[in-house]
């Protein structure tokens, strides 16, 4: 049979766990298929600019990519729903919604028939909750949030702004310096494990944790439709099986790393604290209003995905109360 070669990209940077798991998966597919399907891994940003991986898959520049749905907000506002947003599903709830409750189908529907890329159940890795804020100042009540100079991205930024925070837009790479120099007082970034690797213990004393701001920042594998169709059935099964395994492995690994990171932040002299209930409640309420308003304004798929996630959240909570 013909030997097939795919190119696949994570979204980087090289030391990020999702890039590392992406690379491991590529090698595993090549090995398990005995070279019938060689998947060459690339670091995010090395071929096309970082965060534009899915368009490259669509164009056939890449055959596969591992990226955050949120990075496709430029095309589909609804992509922000399956992302690190306040009120999103967390961990296993998100993965089971994606795999069994129609999440993957809705995502394909959102991308549309004419878009030359698809995803499938098992392709989503739910990251552990993101750190709520790394902060220089204590956050005890909503008064501390009002006027807080905080770096927030995405819809969360808009929601915090509505709650009175002075939200600042700064690229991730400049956060460390901006904190060190006092341009901002607090910021959101990624999970405990990633943030520990970014050495953020050096620039902020308080680490506030709560799943309220970003219950999960999912990473999803996408493949080019034509490349997928051209794959023999046994290889399709092999790819799908390995993707499902590595996304689950990464999820568990990061859960474990985040638990360890709490100890590491503490040992480094940081205070790891729960976000006060008052702030969580205010954020959740504002987020619900925000998305309810947005569901009415955006195209029908937005409401469809939002409603599906919201009702799944209630059902999940009822079953896991």
């Amino acid at each position: 049979a013909d030997k097939i070669t795919w190119r696949s990209s994570g979204h980087g940077p090289a030391s990020d766990p999702s890039q590392i798991y992406h690379d491991m998966l590529c090698k595993a597919i090549t090995k398990a298929s005995d070279g019938r399907l060689t998947v060459k891994p690339f670091v995010g940003g090395s071929i096309v600019p970082a965060y534009q991986e899915l368009d490259a898959v669509e164009q056939g520049v890449l055959q596969m990519a591992y990226t955050c749905p949120m990075y496709n907000l430029d095309k589909w506002p609804a992509a922000g729903l399956i992302s690190s947003r306040p009120g999103c599903l967390a961990g296993n709830a998100l993965r089971s919604w994606f795999d069994f409750a129609g999440g993957a189908d809705l995502m394909n529907k959102m991308m549309g028939d004419s878009y030359n890329a698809i995803t499938f159940p098992g392709a989503l890795s739910p990251l552990p909750p993101e750190v709520f804020f790394h902060s220089k100042v204590e956050l005890n009540s909503m008064d501390d949030v009002k006027g807080l100079k905080a770096r927030c991205m995405g819809d969360g930024g808009e929601i915090f702004k509505r709650l009175g925070a002075a939200t600042v837009i700064i690229p991730g790479g400049e956060l460390y310096e901006a904190m060190q120099r006092g341009t901002i007082d607090a910021f959101e970034y990624s999970t405990l494990a990633s943030n520990w690797k970014m050495h953020f213990n050096e620039v902020a004393k308080y680490v506030y944790v709560s799943p309220a701001r970003a219950p999960s920042d999912p990473q999803v594998f996408f493949v080019n439709k034509e490349a997928w169709a051209a794959l023999p059935e046994d290889l399709k099964e092999l790819v799908q099986g390995l993707v499902a395994r590595f996304t689950q492995d990464q999820h568990e690994y990061l859960e474990y790393e985040s638990i360890k990171a709490v100890e590491e932040f503490r040992a480094a002299g940081n205070e790891v604290r729960r976000v006060p209930d008052e702030i969580v409640a205010a954020l959740t309420a504002e987020a619900d209003t925000f998305y309810a308003e947005k569901s009415e304004k955006e195209s029908p798929i937005f409401k469809e995905i939002y409603d599906s996630m919201t009702s799944y959240r209630s059902a999940y909570e009822a079953a896991n109360a």
Binding site: P13, A14, S15, V43, G173, E177, Q180, H199
Partner: peptide
Amino acid sequence: VVYAPQAGLSIGQMF
């Protein structure tokens, strides 16, 4: 700033 995160180093320490 670009190098440090790629290599998993602290930007502050590199500075």
